[in-house]
Design a protein around this nucleic acid. Sequence first.
RNA 1: CGGGGAGUGGCGCAGCUUGGUUUAGCGCGCAGCGUUCGGGACGCUGAGGCCGGGGGUUCAAAUCCCCCCUCCCCGACCA
Length: 480
Amino acid sequence: MSTDAQAFVKEIPSKSEQFSDWYTAVCLKAELADYSPVRGCMVIRPYGYALWEGMQRWLDERFKATGHVTAYFPLFVPESLLKKEAEHVEGFAPDCAWVTHGGAEELAERLAVRPTSEAIIMPMYAKWIQSYRDLPLLLLQWNSVVRWEKATRLFLRTTEFLWHEGHTAHATLEDADQECLTILDIYRQLLEDVLAIPVLVGRKPASEKFAGADWTYTLEALMPDRQAIQAGTSHFLGQNFAKAFGVKFLDRDNTEKFVWTTSWAVSTRLIGALIMAHGDDRGLGLPPRIAPIQVVIVPILGKQPEQALAAARVFSERLGKVARVRLDDRDEYTPGWKFNEWEMRGVPIRLEIGPRDVAAKAAVMVKRTGGGKVTVSWDGIEQAVLTALDEVQRAYFDRAKAFLADHTVEAATFEQLEEAIRERRGFVRTGWCQAQACEDLIRERTGASPRVIPLDDEPDGECLACGKPSTAIVYYARAY
RNA sequence: CGGGGAGUGGCGCAGCUUGGUUUAGCGCGCAGCGUUCGGGACGCUGAGGCCGGGGGUUCAAAUCCCCCCUCCCCGACCA
């Protein structure tokens, strides 16, 4: 029996020793996703999709509260529209999937399957926006986009992926920039408060900005393999798209002006970040605020299952009013099997209810983050569970935050930066003169890219590449 | 896109080097019945496979040759 258990555990590779294999195994075994018959495209299974729905619900509430409304734009982008903004087409056209036929007929103009939707949305904005009274226009859509990636990984990079994309138009630069920052902070809250993933918040260096943007704000998280992952972006598009698509409005002063636009997104890639951030050798680990099942109740059935089952049902109903609860009353599996199964699926809290508990009017509670079994009495079990859920949420965040702190280092010299990247220390904080040549040199010599220029960090020291006084702080890392 | 590795019942694999006693096997899982149930239970019975696809070589191909597809891992580029 114990040897079987060991054999089973080995089905999930070690997270610390075989991170990539571990990641793939967890995605598949926890039934978050599966491979599809289409190259590069994954199937998001119900348990994985429930994570996405959780993010959607949380975000949608904030988007609505900040005045955004949801719309839907076409899947296809005519090539002529995609080409209107020069930098944009250069960035995205190489990775587009193209529709060339409708039925048997060849199309006069081929259609890109949207890699992002600016180019199909802007013509509509040109039509809808006439006056400053039409601004700001705050729209978003929930959709999928397609980018013909060469190498793919479940959730982290797939040919088609799900996201939302916000597209807003404003009368002034300041309004548009403020919009970017408002969204950025909503994203930060999603990452930190819900997904328990601490992030660095800032701007992208020019080389990493969105194709067609003036600047891009970003959230960068550090994964356990010490690679950075871009967790969300908010783009200040300036008047680039407005000018390319002729989106103008008549202002109060009776002069015609181009609008200022933004676009922003987070994708199902966040599910990948979530898996990597909190899982362990037993499988998935889910922060309670995003866990589709927060509490699983496992009755210990034994010879006289009725009593334990009856108590479990009562708990299920009571706790169901304050948390997302699953009663696992399947009689074809033993309790031990279920314990392992639900741990592998990352459920934050488990309650066991057996004959002993019924006799003592108690239940055994176990947190996914550790601490062993504790006995809780039936009275006030709701409060005990809610407290435990908070503790698990905090434990994940604290752990991730400590990891980030432990893997953020300073580099005062080029050699230190080189070594920190080579040794995969994580984020490396340095000064930078913001010259492209210096960035290129560092990229070439170390393999690291500048991930983020923090918003709230004053420049100090010198640029490691050229020795001139730095004009910005930048965090380097290897990245997904 | 380079460099490695892999495709054999649902999953994990063996068989391939040296083609033929292999009727393609093992473990897990699955179905039925019974016994079990506080950390991946057990017995009995049973179902399930044109060996990734296509071409070739041969009396004979899971096994040898060629082409293609897909996936995984390690690197270079992108949410």
